[in-house]
Each structure stands twice: as C-alpha cells, then as structure tokens.
C-alpha cells in the first residue's frame, strides 16, 4: 500500500547523541502531548478503563443498584462463567456465531476479491459501479433490514421467484435457514468495505509482475491466482480479521431480522444474549463473563488466521 509508506523525513533519526541531554523530558515538541491529550483521555475513559472494568465485573457478584447506594460486590471467582456456560442458550449462541462465521468469512473473502479485481480494471461506469458497490455498507443496518424482511418474507418476492423451491417455513422463521440468511445478509451488507480494502491493496501489486506473467504466457485467470492472490495477502489477513471481529459482534441482525434470535434461539448471537441476560434481566456479571469468553475465542481465531493465512509477512 503506497500511502502507508513513511516518507524518509519522518524516519530521520533523532539529532546527534551529544544534543540529547538538552532535549526536554517530553521530547522536542512537548506540545504534541497537549494536542493529543484529549484523545488519550478519551481512549482511557471509553476503552482502557471499561476493558479492565469488564473483566473485573465478570469475577464479582455485580448487579444494578440505585445510583449512589453503597453495595457489597464480593469476589466470586469463576462463578459467573459457570452460570453463563451452564445455560444451553449461551452454548448455542456460540455455535450459531460459528455457523455464521463459516458462511460469512469465506464468502466475504472470495466475493470481495473477485469484485475488487473486476472493478479495478474498469474504465466505463466506474462512478456508478463504485456507488452501487458501497451503498449497502454505507446504509444503516436498520434501514436495509426493513427491506430484507420484505424480500424474504413468507410470500415475499424471493419466495415468489423460487416458487416450489422456497423453504417452508420461510427463510427467517426457519430453524435451519435463519442463521445462514443472516450470514448472507451481513455478507451483502459489508462487502463494499472489503472491496474498498482490496482495491487499495491491488494498487500496491507491482505492475511488472503482471507483465512478466503475461510474457511467460499466463492468461488472466492464471495471473489472478499466481500474481493477484499472493500480492494482496496482507489485505486478505486484514479482511479475515475484520470480518471475524464484525461477525462475533453480531447484534442488530438477529435482534431485528429474526425477531430476537428466533426461531427458538436458532439465530441468537452471544451479544444478543449479553443484552437480554445482562441488561434486560439485570445480570451484568454473567453478561460480562460471556463477553470476556467471546473476545478470547475471537482472539484465538484471529491468531489462527494470521498463523495460516499470514505466511511470512
């Protein structure tokens, strides 16, 4: 990615050793710290502290108390984790998100790379294609959920076109199709963003590689697999990571598209359970435990992806 290269002026080493002692503690331009202070305070307040607090809550008996009331919140060890994961609904929600990721992540990688490389070489209708590819990503989930509900409804246009092939009960109320439908929806909704990432990565693939591939007699398909695919591998790792994190955070779609994770919890996601259990039913401690486990699982998956797809870079 050309734009990520640091211009040489910045990587210039600090001035000679003998002048070092004259540099103030906060560096040459301590003003930089002042300029960044609001951002740093924001990060600590909204990310760092809540992150630690989340783990703390998950190990204590935590409940909502009236504001200002002094309440005892004893340390309970792993009790919240045990409570959370002896609930079959929680286990099932993790399984659901697993199904979601198995469909969504590979589909996202293949389709976004395919469309990005097709779009990359286009000279006509470029603006039109760009707008149409990015629009689902830019639009609120809530707005597009409304139209998908209409499209995939029992006698919606999708089933009308499919005729006898339509599943019964219909997609979003069918135990087997609810989660795949959500995975398909999210793939469609987010694809524009990943196309954008791949387009940026495609600019960085050296043109000479395509030239020499073509001199060696490779056709378009061959050079796609032997030049483009390896050339955009860093972007692929990023797409895997971002789509996995996004998928693990699934909330809006099962909440609205399948009416709160239905049918019978077939499309409930861990975050939906965290909301229902933690905030609706007032068990923030078990919800925090689910959140901590979810993040550990996601980190594990991300590590594996990086290990096997990242190669040497």
């Amino acid at each position: 990615m050309t734009s990520t290269l640091t211009p040489p002026a910045v990587s210039r080493p600090p001035e000679g050793g003998k002048r070092k002692r004259r540099r103030p503690f906060f560096g040459k331009n301590p003003l930089g710290l002042l300029f960044s202070a609001p951002y740093l305070v924001f990060v600590i307040l909204v990310f760092a502290y809540p992150l630690v607090y989340s783990v703390w809550i998950s190990f204590h008996d935590f409940f909502f108390a009236a504001p200002g009331a002094q309440v005892d919140r004893p340390f309970v060890g792993l009790e919240n984790y045990i409570t959370a994961f002896s609930d079959p609904a929680v286990i099932r929600s993790f399984g659901n998100v697993g199904i979601f990721l198995l469909i969504n992540v590979p589909l996202t990688v293949v389709l976004s790379l395919l469309l990005a490389s097709a779009l990359n070489k286009v000279t006509h209708f470029r603006a039109f294609l760009r707008v149409s590819f990015y629009v689902p990503y830019l639009t609120a989930s809530v707005a597009v959920v409304a139209v998908w509900l209409f499209l995939f409804n029992g006698n919606g246009i999708v089933n009308q076109v499919l005729g006898p092939l339509a599943p019964s009960p219909s997609w979003l109320v069918n135990e087997h199709w609810a989660m795949p439908s959500i995975a398909l929806f999210v793939t469609w909704k987010q694809l524009g963003f990943y196309i954008l990432l791949y387009l940026a990565a495609l600019q960085a693939v050296p043109q000479e590689l395509y030239e020499s591939a073509s001199t060696d007699g490779a056709g378009a398909v061959r050079s796609f697999f032997s030049v483009t695919v390896p050339g955009v591998r860093p972007a692929t790792v990023l797409v895997l990571l971002v789509s996995t994190v996004t998928g693990a955070n699934l909330f809006t779609e099962p909440y609205l598209l399948t009416g709160g994770g239905g049918p019978n919890g077939a499309s409930a996601s861990p975050v939906l359970i965290m909301y229902q259990d933690g905030l609706q039913q007032g068990h923030p401690d078990t919800a925090a435990a689910i959140g901590v486990v979810l993040v550990i699982v996601v980190l594990g998956i991300a590590w594996l992806q990086n290990r096997f797809a990242g190669g040497n870079d």
Binding site: P50, V245, A248, N249
Partner: peptide, 9 residues
C-alpha cells in the same frame, strides 16, 4: 477492540 465487549461496562 470490539465495542460489544465494552457494552456492559
């Protein structure tokens, strides 16, 4: 950092 982890705190 997934926002959802921060949801409860």
């Amino acid at each position: 950092i997934p926002f959802q982890l921060l949801m409860i705190p």
